[in-house]
């Protein structure tokens, strides 16, 4: 397992958030896409919607599973990654880059501090993988 990028922070539910200039990019982790398998569809809020940290943000579907996505941060949705919506395989191929899901204008950037660091997230994933069998 390669280590997760250190330029962002993570949730226990396998989402990530990366803070930029007045906006945060949100996506799902490499571990999440790996576990879910071939992704086929995302159900995400429209720009303008308000989301709350740790509340349900939307859904991701693979061929034979549906999983919920939780918001890593509170704020207003300002953009949805249309390329990833049109080609969900992007999220499988590049979950931390081209396969981001949406941009949020954070209501409180300090919420980032409550999220997991890359190291802590990797440790969580290592335990989860160990518990698989």
């Amino acid at each position: 397992m390669t280590s997760s990028p250190k330029d962002r922070r993570y949730t226990k539910e396998h989402e990530w958030a990366r803070l930029g200039d007045g906006e945060a990019m949100v996506g799902i982790t490499d571990f999440a896409q790996e576990q879910l398998g071939d992704l086929v569809y995302f159900d995400l809020p429209e720009p303008g919607a308000q989301v709350r940290q740790h509340a349900k943000l939307g859904e991701v579907e693979s061929v034979k599973a549906v999983s919920e996505i939780y918001a890593p941060l509170s704020g207003e949705v300002i953009e949805v990654n249309q390329k990833a919506m049109d080609s969900p395989e992007l999220v499988n191929q590049d979950p931390y880059g081209e396969g981001w899901l949406l941009k949020v204008r954070p209501a409180d950037a300090s919420e980032m501090d409550s999220l997991l660091s890359a190291e802590d997230y990797d440790a969580l994933v290592a335990t989860a993988e160990g518990g698989q069998h």
């Binding site: 071939d38 992704l39 086929v40 569809y41 061929v63 080609s87 395989e89």
Partner: peptide
């Protein structure tokens, strides 16, 4: 037929 691409069908 051999295995079919179910992901493409759903995408």
């Amino acid at each position: 037929l051999r295995r079919l691409d179910e992901a493409a069908a759903a995408r």
